[in-house]
Design a protein around this nucleic acid. Structure first.
Length: 418
RNA sequence: GUGCCUGUAGCUCAAUGGCAGAGUGCUUCACUGUGGCUGAAGAUGUUGUGGGUUCGACCCCCAUCAGGCACCCCA
């Protein structure tokens, strides 16, 4: 055999077992999204680089996007995120759409990064947004969607938490400390990096940003103040609403959530595993204007994105992924020998007609056929040999329990359906 | 893009410059109408790839590819 060509760095193969898990994940986030009335949409995976022009100074596009020329020489980008796409979609039909929009999406994205655990170059992402609403109800709703998703996959609030903050609150608090605009920007960035740096290094960098010792102490006080949210009317309302929605267990306040320096303006949030073992599961927040970069009427909204990689690692760690076995309802139809093949084929066809999934075997020793059925994770095996045909019976064996019963051919379908 | 660690059978890993191994999985048989358990036998490698040092390299050196960790950034 010739050498197997490697897959592209940072990509993954999805064998049937993994594909089944991906479909399962999609089914769960679909349930969470649709429970709140969100509708699925998608855009192209290929976009013109101009779509990202407004952000072209940012690292995401400049350093991390896959860009190549098409045959006509025009630069094409593999989408690294969905926001510019949805912005275009909203802006170009702004007068026909009824706001607020509740939209969700799941699809592939590409970023040219160094792969490591929880981060690949090709990944899938759940995006969900409520667009055209500036209400704190909308912010709370998105958090409730995320909480519903976690409950749906079996992650309790002991294992994952949605950590929330308010950019306006932080802005005001930093202003109170006497920071100017430049300092505020630098400090917001440093708050984001607090966990990554040794404390003495971090303090040094804060002072280098121009803060006094007093301001540093004040800043540290802010970051340890778990009750700081009480200074934000919006957060007070938010937590009230989440209480009413029955989701407050999943949500907590964290003054250290900043979410970089992107377009978020109000409430921001991230979900993490409570042990802090993994990267952020999802991140999002409130933005003042989705379509600012592409023209159109200012459109606020709130949304979040969740990658498939980290959530699957966490679900795997806690044993919450579904069984990789075949569908337990599927049937394995053995063929005893040449003389009974026709009867087995006919029975299989009849069962498929009745809605069952039926796999057929090759003619071989029954032991081999059972062994194969067992290896591929089949639960139920049917035997239709000469003696069964003679008596009008079918043998049904449950491979998990080892129990085996003889069933009247006429009763087979009702017995299997039970 | 920066720094560091790792790469040996399908999988998990041994072998510290001197004959490439184990467990598990796989194939066959015991078992010609029944998988799992047990027992026996068997197959499997350009030691990621390409160079170099050496009488001799899985082992040391260089490059390269891939994975992982910390940055950067972020899902």
């Amino acid at each position: 055999m010739s050498k197997i060509i490697q897959k592209v760095k940072g990509t993954r193969d999805f064998y049937p077992e993994e594909m089944a898990q991906r479909q399962w994940l999609i089914s769960k986030l679909r349930v969470a999204s649709e429970a709140f009335g969100y509708r699925q949409y998608d855009g192209p995976c290929l976009e013109q680089i101009e779509l990202y022009a407004a952000k072209s100074g940012e690292e995401l596009v400049k350093e991390q996007a896959f860009v190549f020329d098409d045959r006509g020489g025009d630069p094409i980008t593999l989408r690294p995120e969905l926001t510019p796409t949805i912005s275009r979609m909203v802006a170009s039909q702004q007068n026909q759409l009824t706001f607020p929009l509740r939209w969700w999406s799941f699809g592939p994205f590409w970023r040219y990064e160094r792969p490591q655990k929880g981060r690949t170059r090709e990944f899938f992402q759940w995006n969900i947004d409520q667009i055209g609403s500036d209400s704190v109800l909308a912010d709370a709703e998105l958090l409730a969607v995320a909480a519903r998703f976690f409950r749906e996959v079996g992650l309790s609030s002991d294992l994952v938490q949605l950590r929330v903050n308010d950019r306006e609150l932080m802005d005001a608090e930093l202003m109170n400390l006497g920071l100017d605009e430049v300092q505020k920007t630098a400090i917001l960035r440093l708050i984001d990096r607090l966990d990554k740096l040794p404390i003495d290094v971090w303090e040094k960098m804060v002072l280098e940003a121009g803060l006094t010792e007093t301001q540093l102490r004040g800043l540290q006080g802010l970051l340890e103040n778990k009750l700081l949210w009480k200074n934000s009317p919006r957060l007070v309302q938010l937590f009230d609403i989440l209480e009413d929605l029955g989701e407050s267990a999943y949500v907590s306040y964290d003054p250290r959530i900043i979410r970089g320096l992107d377009y978020y303006t109000g409430v921001v949030f991230e979900a993490h595993d409570t042990k802090g073992e993994f990267r952020a599961i999802l991140g999002g927040g409130h933005y003042a204007d989705l379509v600012a970069d592409v023209g159109g009427k200012p459109t606020p909204g709130v949304g979040f994105a969740m990658g498939d990689v980290v959530i699957m690692l966490i679900l795997e760690k806690y044993g919450l992924l579904p069984s990789r076995d075949m569908d337990p309802q599927a049937l394995f139809m053995t063929i005893f020998d040449e003389t009974t093949q026709a009867a087995s084929l006919a029975l299989a066809a009849e069962l498929r007609q009745a809605g069952f999934k039926v796999l057929m075997s090759e003619i071989d020793r029954l032991g081999k056929q059972f062994r194969y059925a067992d290896r591929i994770g089949m639960r139920r095996v049917l035997v239709l040999g000469p003696s069964e045909i003679e008596k009008g019976l079918v043998v049904v064996k449950d491979l998990k329990s080892g129990e085996q019963v003889e069933v009247e051919r006429q009763q087979l379908i009702s017995m299997l359906s039970a």
